[in-house]
Design a protein around this nucleic acid. Structure first.
Lengths: 123, 123
DNA sequence: GCCGCTAGGTGTACGGTGCACCTACGGGTC
DNA sequence: GACCCGTAGGTGCACCGTACACCTAGCGGC
């Protein structure tokens, strides 16, 4: 929650969520960093930090989860396009299982809270 | 994911998740720290760090989200029991809304991934 | 006296995150 | 040419949550 009273989703997003998001987007198709920066917002990640995104991509490259190659562009500077590796795909599947568990944990949280609200309004 | 290949839920738990969990548990009833340490595991938080838990409780105390008072114990050292304040209850409700959004975001993630898996197995 | 359980706490290092800032290419405008 | 804007990638750094180690103290039992 921010000072202006708006509840802020970003505060409670999963830790390290950028990584799985990028892998998912790359699983849907190869892309370069600047492009991914756009697409992450459609996955629920508001205003992703470019620095963090590029760092994340490079880390995954070094770990072999993605492949990268430079490609020239006629309308601007060269871009580095990333593609998911087999290892990255395996990693994504494993992570998906963890995220599913987190999903369940959040469900439990809401359930427990809702049970309280009902009790409080009934009494 | 850990080195032994086990997918690790804790890595992808929401950021700052301890706070909402403690508030929820205190909404269900007053408790002291050592007791909360036990109950958090039933909310999906595996092996919570005692140090972090006590620090979190104290921070929420200073922010007025919880009240605390020392109570002597006949079977051991004195304990500090915590109770949710009205402000804490409001905060919990606001946070719940954010967590619900995160829940939805995770659902979208699984949906997008599943659509990929289907496409890949069909082709 | 010593151990184990209960209960609360400190110190500290690591890593993810956010913010500011920088380089470089191409195109349009003055 | 000088300038700005959009595209594209990147570094530096400070903050803070988290994890791990470690400490104090009360009580009961051997």
């Amino acid at each position: 929650m921010t000072s202006d009273g708006k509840s802020d989703v970003a505060v409670f997003l999963p830790r390290n969520y950028l990584r799985p998001c990028l892998l998912l987007l790359l699983a849907e198709g190869t892309a370069h960093g600047y492009e991914l920066l756009d697409q992450t917002s459609k996955l629920g990640l508001p205003n992703v930090d470019p620095g963090g995104l590029y760092r994340c991509l490079r880390a995954m490259d070094e770990e072999g989860l993605v492949d990268s190659r430079w490609e020239p562009s006629s309308i601007g500077p060269a871009r580095r396009t990333y593609a998911l590796t087999r290892e990255g795909r395996d990693w994504l599947r494993a992570v998906s299982a963890s995220l599913a568990q987190v999903h369940g944990i959040l469900e439990l949280f809401q359930h427990r809270l809702q049970r309280l609200e009902v009790r409080d309004t009934v009494i």
